[in-house]
Amino acid sequence: MDKLCEKVISVSDLCLAYGNFKVLNQVSFDVTKGSCTIIMGGSGCGKSTLLKSLIGLLKPKAGHIYIEESDLWHASNSEKQNLLRKFGVLFQGGALWSSLNILENLALPLQTHTSLSEQEIKELAYYKLSLVGLSGFEMFYPSEISGGMRKRAGIARAMILDPSIIFLDEPSAGLDPVNARRLDDLIIELKQSLGVTFVVVTHELASIFEIGDHSIFLDSRTKSIIAKGSPSNLLQNCESSEVQSFLKREG
């Protein structure tokens, strides 16, 4: 099989619910290695819920999530920990640990999962922060930097263990256009140079067309995927009025 078409995530017949309230039903899709898959759809359609399940935080009611052929939700504890180590996650608000400074935020996963020396950890953290343009802010606490900087620090933390898959929840929400563009460029660079696979939840049309190789469109009415394909292909060929309204930003 072509390396580039290798499936790294395979979701089959996934059903997600909060208690008795069903959010998604019978969702199936694949994510190929080194690609950027966009999860899109209107507000409340279950994008973030799907992401939560993909990163091991919300147990599905039914269905399977395979990460490189291991079933995430039926794996043993140690197997699941190994799978989680392949992930990097950027949460909507950055989710930096507020009692730690930026350097400590990046150092904690390294201290937990590697046997690197303090000096090596520090150097690696400084390097990752330089990649997102945050050199000089290592000793700042999350409350002392702007929302955009918190997001960039969150991305640096998501990359700290050199994950093969990075999940981003609304990465450019709240960022100014210049920083949003920089973030898109960073995603493209990481994808091309390191072969990192991205799964991105976003509403931002500019980002969707810029970074997305593949996309799935969730619909809150049917609680399932109503369209799949590259964003530009969906724009040109998808007949669904919901998808067209969303991608053309029509009322």
Binding site: K52, I55, G56, L57, Q81, L84, R85, F87, V89, F91, Q92, G93, A95, L96, W97, S98, S99, L108, P109, T112, H113, R157, L161
Partner: peptide, 19 residues
């Protein structure tokens, strides 16, 4: 403190790092 961490998804961030 912990409730605020939950609100800001800091607890989820810990869990995704296996902490």
């Amino acid at each position: 403190e912990l409730g605020n961490m939950k609100l800001n998804e800091e607890l989820d961030a810990l869990r995704t790092f296996g902490i």
